[in-house]
Simulated assay, not measured.
Amino acid sequence: MSQTLPPASLAGRTALVTGSSRGIGADTVRYFAEAGANVVINFRNKAPRAQKLATELEGLGVQALVVGADLTDPASVQEMFSEVERTFGSLDILVLNASGGMEGGMAEDYALQLNRDAQVRVLETALPLLGDDARVVFVTSHQAHFIRTTPTMPEYEPVARSKRAGEDALRELIPMLQERGIGFVVVSGDMIEGTITATLLERANPGAIADRRESAGKLYNVSEFAAEVARAAIDPIPADNTRLVGDTSSFQGE
């Protein structure tokens, strides 16, 4: 994996990525560590995988803290940030990457709990640790970001609407974040090849990925999209607080 952020550009800083034991989250946290940041690897139920990643990143000369937390449980979230405070004292980058809602056996409102309520709670709980010049990044998809104007696959619609609700709730906090000197960016990507969501959608709707790839011309893979998420943590903030990754020509504007 090539260097994505300038060497040592995050030296002395601390970054937490939710859902970072695998996939986009893991690659994002790896990019931060390669740039010199101490990192917090958050997982829900993949402790061995998270610990293996931490060991790898510590080999880069940074400190890696592994913290398990259920983001839908306020006490669990509070304990996660208490551990971050005990270890690092503060936080410079918070990436709200963990999401879901297509899992089986969950409560009917689970997608909304995780993709809206938990996202806001995580940010609000992190606020005391986020100082001037901190950056918050919310990761979403075009299918969710544009859901109000562009329909998506029926299997994904409840998740898309819950993620858009989360994005809207977080955007309402932008004035408060700006007063504190904290930047906020939404990173929206097209369907990402190799993610769990893409796999589940393909299972429910065979051919969906190939159809989208043909329509878009290219789909980003996990490491390519993670690089865009990592860059959003240091690049200038767009005027509309939105970084669109990949083709948007088939999505109607808001």
Rank of each mutant, 00 (worst) to 15 (best):
L5I: 10
L5A: 04
L5W: 03
A8M: 12
A11V: 11
A15S: 10
A15L: 11
T18Q: 02
T18C: 05
T18N: 00
S20R: 00
S21W: 01
R22E: 08
R22N: 11
A26G: 02
A26I: 03
R30Q: 06
Y31I: 07
F32A: 02
A33L: 03
E34K: 11
E34A: 13
E34F: 07
F43K: 07
R44D: 10
R44T: 13
R44K: 13
A47F: 08
P48W: 03
R49A: 14
R49G: 08
Q51L: 12
K52D: 15
K52Y: 09
K52F: 08
L53G: 04
A54T: 03
G61F: 08
A64S: 13
V66Y: 01
V66C: 01
G68R: 06
G68P: 08
G68T: 08
D70T: 11
L71V: 09
L71W: 07
L71K: 05
T72M: 11
V77P: 04
V77E: 09
E79W: 08
M80R: 01
M80A: 14
S82C: 13
E83K: 15
R86W: 09
R86A: 15
F88Q: 00
F88V: 04
G89Y: 11
L91P: 00
L91W: 01
L91H: 02
N97P: 01
A98N: 03
A98C: 04
G100F: 03
G100L: 06
G100V: 04
G100R: 02
G101N: 07
G101S: 05
M102Q: 07
M106L: 14
A107P: 09
A107Y: 05
A107S: 14
E108Y: 12
D109Y: 05
Y110M: 13
A111Y: 02
R116P: 00
R116L: 10
A118T: 06
V120K: 05
R121M: 14
R121C: 09
R121F: 14
E124I: 08
T125Y: 01
L127S: 04
L129K: 01
D133C: 06
V136H: 06
V137A: 00
F138N: 11
F138L: 14
V139M: 04
V139F: 02
S141R: 04
Q143K: 10
A144Q: 06
R148L: 14
T152F: 07
Y156P: 02
L170M: 14
L170E: 06
R180S: 12
R180C: 13
G181F: 08
I182C: 10
F184D: 01
V187R: 02
D190S: 13
D190M: 14
I192D: 03
E193G: 13
T195A: 11
T197N: 09
L201H: 03
A210C: 05
A210D: 15
D211K: 10
D211F: 09
G217A: 08
G217R: 02
K218C: 09
K218H: 14
L219M: 04
L219W: 05
Y220K: 08
S223V: 11
A226K: 06
A226S: 14
A227D: 03
A227L: 04
E228C: 12
A230M: 06
A233Y: 02
I234A: 04
P238L: 12
N241F: 15
R243T: 15
R243P: 01
L244W: 02
L244Y: 07
T248S: 13
S249N: 13
S250M: 13
F251R: 01
F251T: 00
E254F: 15
